[in-house]
């Protein structure tokens, strides 16, 4: 799916913000992966030339955290989180509808809980002042994505709860109807 074509399931101003956040997440995801490849290759070249990039590993750690936490809300937005739907799919429509509301609400609440505690962890780390040994920057700089990612994911599932309560269909996310998209061509 091209993000320029991403249509938010949300009305008005909320929709505009949603689309903007979706764009930012997508750019962070793509950039994170490209930088990771560049960093890793540069490290090889450096080592063969006799100058190891000693902070390469830490940079990759920072990038994998960025990718994971930008990605979980992006995945929530597109209904791409892995679930075992065999029993769910076998239920009648009304039960599925109620179940989906429950799932989205509980997931949203869990994400907000983790937002709170990852914020607590972040502040704790900032207070301890631990540095990354090679980059020599504060360690908390690379984990700010955790609370942010959990928070945006919580919002996505919260909105999915509301969407399922207002709409007659069953929604995996604000923009994705239930049921896996089978087309192998589909891009995300």
């Amino acid at each position: 799916m091209d993000d320029s074509e991403y249509v938010s399931g949300l009305p008005g101003f909320l929709g505009v913000i949603d689309v903007a956040i979706a764009r930012i997440e997508a750019v962070l995801l793509a950039l994170g992966v490209l930088l990771m490849a560049a960093n890793t290759v540069a490290n090889v070249v450096g080592r063969i030339a006799g100058h190891t990039i000693y902070f390469s590993e830490e940079l990759n750690q920072a990038l994998i955290i960025l990718i994971t936490f930008a990605g979980i809300s992006y995945a929530a937005r597109h209904g791409r989180h892995i679930r075992m739907s065999a029993f769910f799919d076998a239920m009648p429509f009304r039960s599925r509808k109620l179940m989906m509301i429950l799932i989205a609400a509980v997931t949203s609440a869990t994400m907000f809980l983790l937002t709170w505690y990852s914020l607590a962890y972040l502040l704790e780390q900032a207070g301890r002042g631990r540095l990354l040994p090679a980059l020599r920057i504060p360690q908390w700089w690379i984990i700010v994505w955790a609370p942010l990612g959990f928070f945006l994911t919580g919002i996505q599932y919260g909105l999915t709860t509301v969407k399922n309560m207002l709409d007659k269909d069953i929604w995996l996310s604000t923009s994705t109807l239930e049921g896996y998209d089978d087309s192998a061509e589909e891009e995300v």
Binding site: G50, H51, T52, Y54, S56
Partner: peptide, 15 residues
């Protein structure tokens, strides 16, 4: 890293 650089090696951090 500094020590091994001073020893003349190519210090290579590795997990």
């Amino acid at each position: 890293v500094e020590s091994y650089q001073a020893f003349g090696a190519t210090p290579t951090p590795l997990p």
